[in-house]
Design a binder for these strands. Structure first.
Lengths: 351, 351
DNA sequence: GTTAGCACTCTATTTGTTCGAGTGCTAACA
DNA sequence: TGTTAGCACTCGAACAAATAGAGTGCTAAC
């Protein structure tokens, strides 16, 4: 165990084993490797090397007389190596994405589906996370005798509608006045900045209609908080069932549940986690690979998760992820995500 | 085979068999019934009756020396019978539903989840289908130098926002004029009623700003069409993995896929289908039961589906459904759906 | 350092056997 | 005539034993 560094032959063998295992999903034996690789070595020699690799922790033997399968550590090495050599691929997802995606949600759903279909794994994508939204402007309008509509425009051109209960019908002129008051005092403020002092000032200026102001402010708060809410869309969850090593016991059920529930998925996006585990991914660009136990989500301990960060505008980003078996085609997945990133970039820039 | 009508003893036996099978999921034999029921008959007699029931098509024998399980026809009889006797139950879902559900989507999602959790089956719910939405009113507002915001209010108090490209900034007074023109001419019209004649009239009155009108009309069309889109929410899809008879082969995969994809689910809601198959459900109220092959969806041929129709306002309705194994607890499911219906009614009425 | 050969291990698969639940039929009974 | 006891029979589930084969580790020879 002189050094953890592998000589090139061990490297080649490990590589061959992993590649083979990715394809077949079966433990791979010495004979197979002896034939498959161009370095012409007998199975016996391979066996010796495999024993070494196992001792070093890169391989695992499910049971005594079975072949070897890669350990998490083995995958990790493979992935890191692969990332270094990775060349940009060009797929043609663009056409699909280019179709008018009226709302960002629809675009995201489409992206998730696209990824799932392309890779045959499960995929997830989150709505982008804004820091704290500022209010751009607000406008009150009559709906009927009992309701007002507040159109709340947030930073980033996000319109929100809120219906507000009213005790009576307001004159247009009154609404006009209120609109002016609200906008002049609240413009470009976020939730933190709207404090009691400002609220008092508004109520003062609103005069007899100050009762309404509280409800309007509630609506604003709700709108901002709503927009801060991160949603997660998933697709291709059922693809999981195509991989026997995942669908065997009831871990598949748990995994599917996680994907359906989405609650937990948000964790993958948590900033803390990103920086915490980010260190030991040898990733280039924005791509992160979590192998087996590296994922923060329990039900995914048998899986690998590859995530990428997309940026919709400066400082506003979301996460895309692909969830599959540990023996996923990392090469393809990383490639797909990379091209997706560039294409999303183009789409968002164009907007 | 004199008559398809069953005497009361056969009825009781069939009933006992089905009840037992609902619980255990195992084929039930003559001995079991002989003990379970109060009509004290020997297993031999039961056997004779069972043979009859099988000949009549109400029971099925998986293999020669196994007990019997209900056929689709058997279930159908059971369900119809049950529906007649059904008494209203009162669950307490209301608390959950009463929590402020700001948007209808959120309410629907909550309902789906509630049903899934309560019944342990999968559930689905569609957004309500409006005939054709009428425009209630529209208002144009400046956003910035290049964009206008159109707030489009549809019948049923649905606000929609559309951002419209503008070549320049419009004066407030101009917008005011446009708003008045648009509203006076378009109010209470649906897509069909907005014809060329009206469009011409608007453009005429808009004068030099008529270029904008086209884009505004597009936005209106889009908004209406968007709202016509029926969405389907599902929940508890993974629950079906709890039932071995469904999760065995890869039919589970297909079923899960159907639930995830949702495309096909819309079929369940199709009016044509409702009236077509509706005839042979002996249902009271709005509840429909599809047993096995009665469902229009292929991947559900091994399942039963119970659907109900909820009405959000006059003539505007959506569908809720529960998908489970054929041996689902029809009693409970129907009860749950019924109370859900009354509680939704209350919620919508209150609004 | 590499390889051939061999004994050994362990699993997956097959085959055979048994067990029991359940049936259908017949004959006896009320 | 309807009900029941009894019996032979069927068939799948469960268990055990046998088999095959893939793979290993080790030793000895090259």
């Amino acid at each position: 165990m002189e050094s953890d560094k592998l000589d090139s032959r061990k490297m080649a063998i490990l590589n061959a084993i992993i590649r083979n295992y990715l394809e077949t999903g079966e433990p791979v034996g010495s004979r197979t490797i002896s034939k498959f690789t161009d370095l012409s070595l007998s199975s016996a020699t391979i066996r010796n090397e495999m024993a070494d690799l196992e001792e070093l922790g890169y391989l695992v033997q499910p049971h005594t007389s079975a072949g070897r399968i890669p350990s998490d550590k083995g995958y990790r090495l493979y992935v890191d190596k692969m990332m270094e050599e990775k060349v940009e691929e060009v797929n043609n997802m663009k056409e699909v994405l280019d179709q008018k995606a009226d709302r960002i949600e629809n675009l995201l759903k489409k992206v998730a589906k696209l990824l799932a279909v392309n890779t045959n794994y499960a995929s997830m994508i989150t709505t982008p996370k804004y820091r704290s939204r500022k209010l751009k402007f607000i406008q009150l309008t009559n709906v009927d005798d009992e309701h007002l509509l507040a159109i709340i425009f947030l930073e980033g051109n996000i319109p929100k509608n809120k219906v507000i209960d009213a005790d009576h019908r307001y004159e247009e002129s009154v609404l006009l006045k209120l609109n002016i008051v609200l906008n002049s005092l609240l413009q470009d403020l976020d939730l933190e900045e709207i404090n009691m002092s400002i609220i008092q000032k508004i109520k003062e200026q609103a005069g007899e209609d100050s009762a309404l102001i509280g409800r309007v402010l509630d609506a604003i708060g709700e709108a901002i908080r709503e927009e801060d809410n991160i949603e997660v869309y998933t697709s291709g969850a059922t693809n999981i069932l195509n991989y026997p090593e995942l669908s065997g016991d009831d871990s598949a059920k748990k995994l599917l549940y996680t994907l359906e529930d989405k609650q937990e998925l948000a964790e993958l996006v948590d900033d803390r986690l990103l920086s915490e585990t980010g260190e030991h991914t040898g990733s280039k660009g924005d791509i992160q690979v979590y192998i087996g136990n590296e994922t923060p989500i329990d039900s995914m301990k048998n899986c690998s998760v590859v995530t990428a960060t997309y940026e919709i505008e400066d400082g506003v980003y979301g996460k895309v992820g692909i969830i599959g078996p540990k023996r996923m085609d990392y090469d393809k997945v990383v490639g797909t995500l990379k091209t997706l990133m560039t294409q999303l970039d183009e789409i968002f820039k164009k907007k």
